[in-house]
Amino acid sequence: MRPNNLSFPLSGIVLLPADSDALLAAALAVRRAVFTVEHGIPQSVEQDDLDHPGADCAHFLARLGGRDAAALRCIFPAPGVVRLQRFCVLPELRGLGVGKAVLTELENRYRPAMRRVELDAKFRVEGFYKACGYRTVSEIFLEAGAEHVKMVKDL
């Protein structure tokens, strides 16, 4: 399910499908800055076979005031389910509402066709997702060397 251009006026944030080589490269650069540089996850683990144009997923790049700010991708593991992956906001832009705005826009976009959003959240940011209406549905587990929990939100 490939989304149309998404934009919303909240704080000047624009969410773009990263469906061109340039936008996908920008989204992957945001992910690399957060996951590889900040968190030390090897790029060979952070990127996989879904990180290329035409992959069976939807990549997104969020911009704040024209500046790349956040990235994520969505897969569709079952009818009515969207699974968020690799969601990140650049460290210097956290606390400005970027993450919440991106989640809200994605939920609004997928609400007509999807009944549930799923994600694996790092345990240390579980509170952020809870504040956005997600609920924890697993015990803590390790993924890429970090503690995670599975979270869901019914749309």
Rank of each mutant, 00 (worst) to 15 (best):
P17R: 14
L28E: 08
D56C: 10
A144M: 08
V149G: 02
A29K: 06
E46N: 06
P91T: 05
V149W: 01
A121Q: 04
E139V: 05
S7E: 14
R115C: 12
A26G: 11
V14D: 10
F128W: 07
P42F: 07
Q85Y: 08
R124V: 15
R31I: 05
R94P: 01
S138T: 09
R124Q: 14
S138I: 06
F60I: 05
E105M: 11
L106A: 01
L61W: 02
I41R: 02
R124M: 12
H59G: 03
L24A: 05
F35N: 01
E46M: 07
A33G: 10
G97L: 02
L64F: 06
L64D: 01
A25L: 08
H39E: 15
V89E: 01
K122L: 14
T36P: 10
L72N: 02
V81E: 10
Q47S: 15
L6T: 07
E46W: 06
C74R: 07
R83D: 07
A62L: 09
I13R: 06
G95N: 05
A121S: 11
G95E: 05
Y110D: 00
F123T: 13
C57S: 12
P112F: 03
D19V: 07
L15A: 06
E118S: 05
S44V: 11
D19Y: 05
R2I: 13
R32E: 11
V82P: 00
P53M: 14
L6P: 06
N108S: 11
V137H: 04
L28M: 12
V37P: 14
S7F: 15
N4Y: 13
F60K: 00
P91Y: 00
G127Q: 15
R116L: 10
L6R: 07
F8T: 10
E126K: 13
L16P: 13
L84F: 13
R32T: 12
G97I: 02
V98S: 01
L15C: 07
F128D: 00
V152L: 11
L28Q: 14
R2K: 15
G80S: 08
G65K: 04
V149I: 10
L15V: 09
L84D: 02
G95K: 04
P3L: 12
L84P: 00
S138L: 07
P17G: 10
S11R: 15
D49R: 11
A113Y: 09
S44R: 11
L84H: 06
P79Q: 11
L23N: 08
E139D: 14
V34G: 00
G97E: 04
G145R: 09
A71L: 04
V30N: 05
F87G: 03
A113D: 12
A146P: 15
L6F: 09
N108G: 13
G80T: 04
A18P: 06
L142R: 15
F141P: 01
G127K: 14
G66N: 02
V152N: 07
P9Y: 08
A58M: 04
